[in-house]
Design a protein around this nucleic acid. Structure first.
Length: 105
DNA sequence: GGTTTGACCCTAA
DNA sequence: ATTAGGGCCAAAC
C-alpha cells in the first residue's frame, strides 16, 4: 500500500463532524514531517471521490486550498453540512481545532 | 537517479 | 505578535 492510499484510508476514517491537520496525518503514517506530502496526495484526488478531503485542514485550523474545481467556499459548505462551525477571517476560513480536531486511539 | 514541486510546519528575525 | 525563510517527505519529470 503506497503513501496515498494510507492517507486516503486514514482520511476516510475521520468521523463526520471532525477534522485533522496535515501534520497530524503525516505523523501517523510516516515519520513526522511529511505534511507536504499529504497535501500532495490531496491535490491528486479526482473531483468525485469518497474521501472526505474537506476534513483535512492546516495546523492552525485554516483552510489552505488552492484547487480550481474545489474552491474554499465548497469546503466550507461541506463542513457546515456536518455541523462544523467555520469562522471567516480576512477572506480565509478557520475551524476551532480545540473543539473539532480528532485524534486516533 | 538527480531535480523540481507542493491542499505544510517550524524557527528565527 | 506578525512575517520570511528554510526544511521536511513523497511523487512526477
Amino acid at each position: 500500500m503506497n503513501f496515498y492510499e494510507q492517507v486516503y484510508a486514514l482520511v476516510r476514517a475521520i468521523p463526520r463532524g471532525r477534522v485533522m491537520t496535515y501534520g497530524q496525518i503525516a505523523g501517523l503514517i510516516s515519520t513526522g514531517r511529511a505534511a507536504r506530502a499529504v497535501g500532495w496526495a490531496m491535490r491528486a484526488l479526482p473531483e468525485s471521490t469518497d474521501v472526505p478531503w474537506q476534513r483535512v485542514i492546516g495546523r492552525d485550523g485554516r483552510i489552505t486550498i488552492v484547487n480550481a474545481h474545489a474552491p474554499k467556499q465548497l469546503q466550507v459548505d461541506l463542513l457546515r453540512g456536518e455541523s462544523v462551525v467555520v469562522i471567516k477571517k480576512e477572506g480565509n476560513f478557520f475551524v476551532d481545532l480545540g473543539q473539532y480536531q480528532w485524534h486516533t486511539e
